[in-house]
């Protein structure tokens, strides 16, 4: 009897995870696409040294971070995946969302402070909590770089 309850609980969690997880991912991607268009004016570079430009008067460290958790259904898929190997697409989309979200937050900070470009951008990823059985529960992505520009005086864009 207990086994039946456990199975029912498992199926309910799986269904909840699937429903809410898919919904959360879709709405998150929509908001990412929208904000990426809005912030397209802020240029981001991975270059270590900025080109000599007299417009770069001010410099300031900016960063953005996000902690995102994977849902129950996707974690189950990843578990199944670990038996046969190959691409774990459920985690790929999780990391993609987290990176893009963190990048957008960094861009937003740069824009708020009146900068137009960010140099030497670094990504930092850490798994901050483990789920059951050493699965990745949630990940943190932190993006930082140095914003260069004429500073807050000139206003955004």
């Amino acid at each position: 009897m207990e086994a039946v309850y456990e199975l029912i609980l498992f199926l309910v969690l799986l269904a909840l995870g699937y429903g809410f997880g898919q919904w959360a991912e879709r709405s998150h991607y929509q908001s990412i696409f929208k904000r990426e268009k809005e912030l397209a004016g802020i240029l981001v570079f991975a270059e270590r040294l900025p080109p000599p430009d007299p417009a770069f008067k001010e410099s300031r460290l900016v960063g953005g971070s996000v902690v995102i958790s994977v849902d129950y259904f996707k974690r189950f898929l990843a578990l199944l995946r670990s038996f046969i190997g190959g691409r774990v697409s459920s985690y790929e989309s999780l990391l993609d969302r987290a990176r893009r979200e963190a990048l957008l937050r960094m861009k937003m900070e740069a824009q708020e402070k009146g900068f137009q470009s960010v140099f030497n951008v670094k990504f930092e990823t850490a798994s901050i909590s483990k789920g059951k059985g050493k699965n990745i529960g949630s990940i943190e992505v932190f993006v930082y770089g140095t914003a260069l520009g004429s500073g807050s005086g000139s206003g955004s864009q």
């Binding site: 969690l13 909840l16 995870g17 809410f20 997880g21 959360a24 991912e25 998150h28 971070s65 996000v66 902690v67 995102i68 958790s69 994977v70 849902d71 129950y72 996707k74 974690r75 979200e101 901050i128 909590s129 789920g131 529960g137 949630s138 943190e140 932190f142």
Partner: peptide, 20 residues
């Protein structure tokens, strides 16, 4: 809260703030 979010997925705002 994080335990619940581990089922539904999504951003853990409390953790984001804490780490910031």
């Amino acid at each position: 809260m994080a335990g619940l979010k581990n089922i539904f997925g999504g951003e853990l705002k409390g953790y984001t703030e804490l780490l910031q």
